[in-house]
Design a protein around this nucleic acid. Sequence first.
DNA 1: CACTTGACCTGTCCGC
DNA 2: TGCGGACAGGTCAAGT
Length: 284
Amino acid sequence: MPELPEVETVKTGLQSLIVGHTISSVDILNPGSFMGKKSQIVGSKVVSISRRGKSLNILLDNGMNIYTHLRMTGQLVYRSAEINFAAGHPNDSMVNDLPDRSTRVIIHFGDNSKLFFNDQRKFGWMKVLTNQELVNQPFLLSMGPEPLADGFIAYDFKSTLKNRKKANIKSILLDQKVVAGVGNIYADEVLFATGIHPTRPLSSVSSKDWSRIKNSLIEILNLSISLGGSTDRNYVDAKGQKGSYLQFAKVFRREGQECLVCGNTIKKIRVAGRGTHVCTVCQS
DNA sequence: CACTTGACCTGTCCGC
DNA sequence: TGCGGACAGGTCAAGT
């Protein structure tokens, strides 16, 4: 599921692949995936790509934006005019010729290259917005700080959360209003790294715990970015390549296997409506 | 207001 | 083999 490291990897890929390209036409295969008028983006040139939390923005030279969220199964895959098949993955059904049945929007560029917005479950979206509309998006206005931005280490979780005592730590880490970009994978990994059980109530999380959480978040997110993110099921980057962070995950998707620290069996429980991976010896 | 649960979708997997 | 149901998890709406 595209979380911060995955969206960051897509952003980096798109920066090298589509900046400077002019949009020549847009095919909307699923109207629910695309909000706004395509006439407002056709003829414009891509200026820059930016990320906030798990959301991505493509800025155009006419002042319009293509604000995008991949949600659970979204992909943004670029293909040049010459190469439609991804090279080197002959047996990989996830990286195939495009469009496929999950393709919802195709953005065509002047050099006949294309950007495919694929989204199996149709939860993701692209919104055409003016700069003013973009900055007024409620989702962006309420979003918490970027964990990889300067100053995050000084961020005071305790004061942000002063009215919240009963919630468990995992649902807090998943709350985009508290901190941006953390999803199920990295919440589980950070809580393992800090020895905190996911169901711990906020009232029992100390300042020292928060300090460990912040340091661990930064370390884990940076490691994942360096590995191209995590591919659990659907995620691929802008070139259609999978990420390899899950090879280094300590608990996520490791239920039934031995804890790499203590040897106890990793368990899968349900917290905040999410599948949650925990070592009950290392985490309390 | 804080917090929890269900809805949104589609594909995969598991048991019968 | 086919079929039903559980499950996957980001965000928002509706419920307690």
